[in-house]
Design a protein around this nucleic acid. Sequence first.
RNA 1: GCCAACGUAGCUCAGUCGGUAGAGCAGCUGAUUCGUAAUUAGCAGGUCGCAGGUUCGAUUCCUGUCGUUGGCUCCA
Length: 637
Amino acid sequence: MPISVRLPDESVRELRDGATGADLAQGIGPRLLDASLAIKVDGRLQDLDVPLPDGSRVALVTSKDPDSLDILRHSTSHLLAQAVKRLFPAAKVGIGPVIEDGFYYDFQVEKFFTPEDLEVIEAEMRKISQEAHVITRQDIRRDEALVRFQSLGELLKVELVSDIPAGEQISGYLQGDFYDLCRGPHVPNTGKLKAFKLLNVAAAYWRGNEKNAQLCRIYGTAFHTQKELDEHLKRLEEAKARDHRKLGKELGLFSFHPEAPASPFFHPKGAIIYNLLVDFMREHYRREGYCEVITPQALDVSMWKTSGHYDKYKENMYFTEVEEREYALKPMNCPTHCLIYGTGKHSYRDLPIRYADFGRLHRYERSGVTQGLTRVRTFCQDDAHIFCAPEQMKAEMASFFTFIMKIYETFGFDEVRVVLSTRPEKRIGSDEIWDLAEHALADGMREAGMNFRESPGDGAFYGPKIEFQVLDALKRPWQLGTLQVDYFLPERFGLRYVKADNTEGTPVMLHRAILGSLERFMGILIEHCAGAFPVWLAPVQLTVLPITDRVRDYAGTIRGRAETLGLRVELDLRNEKVNAKIRDAQLQKIPYMLVIGDREAAEGTVSVRHRQKGDMGAQAVDAFLGQVLQEVRTRVH
RNA sequence: GCCAACGUAGCUCAGUCGGUAGAGCAGCUGAUUCGUAAUUAGCAGGUCGCAGGUUCGAUUCCUGUCGUUGGCUCCA
């Protein structure tokens, strides 16, 4: 009895009963068979050697199919496990899933793998690839699986098998002498796995739980072609070259010291950028109707008890005691803003009230999780809290959305992703209020025509939040801004306003930030622009490079004129050749280099060299400076 | 916090199978006055992260500690 299957182009193909995906591909052409890694049967990915059901819709999966990369990487993780088992028979296998950009495999070992081990393992993987073992699926009964893994000593696998829900088919894959529990599908043959690389080794808890045994995790990646792999490795290199920790040191922006772990010290050049970011936000605050407040650093714990931080956020806070009173350093500004709001009686006519605060915050982060400027223990947010009447919320949200997009656009972050994070397990308040708050945010976004994704359980303890992510120049996502609705804090602090009908109501509080933490933002910005800051932010905007001592005075005049215009300019009077001066200025990523020689001095011009565009020729001084000034004023990115 | 790796001059790094260290760049001094990514010579610079231990002797070996880095969500 022949069967028939329908291909993506709607053509129908007759096959003998029991024919597999491989048979189908073979029938169409040997080249296709060679290119096929798996097959989609009625939308489900399957191995090529599985018999096709009659009347199904099928599509062969080749390297052109986006799903195929995951299959390839998953198979490569098995290849890794096989190599490890060959070289280290005592190693027990954990799990080996596909992740973004690659895969990993966890092993339980006595001695952790070293980077040298990785090379050996990778070589073994290549060997197994060359041996071209057929990879075959073997369905197996639960009791068989338990016995099999038990006898192999693979106790982690036994645990996994035991956790597979009853009634589910248990499967495994055999390639050569290696058998692994796996749901599949896989590529048909280890010979298909050629372009891969093991990247690093790290520790991971079994099933991500700190109470469990620690396993040795090997990360790697794989691609269809060596070219794609090389490109990917190049991207990793590029990311490394842009690392803000490296650039921060090279450009003299900030440093870290053991005396204050995970707490940046901004040097003069870093502080310039930092302060410019604050100025930038202040300028917009004036237009958007915010007013700035300044609040204390250390506050009595009683306030943190009122706000709920003492209950829900204590493990991230620093405490100190003086005169037998316990104080905590603020990890957030919101409660202090509630205190300010509470000092006066407010009319509905006064709302919304928008308090902005650039106060320094301190949050204790576990020592293993801090990282450069992006995860620190002290930072400052472009923080503000909006107190408004419930009916004003949507308008506030809408204007915030346009505000935030305007800010991001200034930095060239034109792709923004939005995520709605909903109630976490650790939270205050009733579910009714949470429903209200979550709906308010979701509705607000829908009305503003914004697309967003939901992330359940990731909200703050006092309210749901919208998170704004931008993609940087390397297309990496970073979370920056946030908008949170909070019904609880105003309630807890007993905040009120008088409504038009002379009754009292409780205002809603919106927590919001655009850049997020200035420290983190600076880190992201450094990586985004690879240290070549836009002219308005560059710590040094111009450098004047006299070629000979004869033009020192003229060079000094140029410097003076630029300074008078408010530009940040340096004059390089070192006894060096122009080439050296240019090289140093380039490495410092100074936007404009002004080369001054006898010619310029005689003609009253400057020869302009731009850090990216190179030599731009001689220009009239005023015209050039005016153009730079314009660039600064309009904040060209 | 846990696991692993790392910590040598201001920076980037080499080195010592245990006998108190070396380069390039930066710095200082001098010569050179030079057209778009490193002119040149000399000099100076280190309690080899910190604290213990082993040893005749430790930067090297051991223990502890501090810091940094990579991870610790993506379920067979």
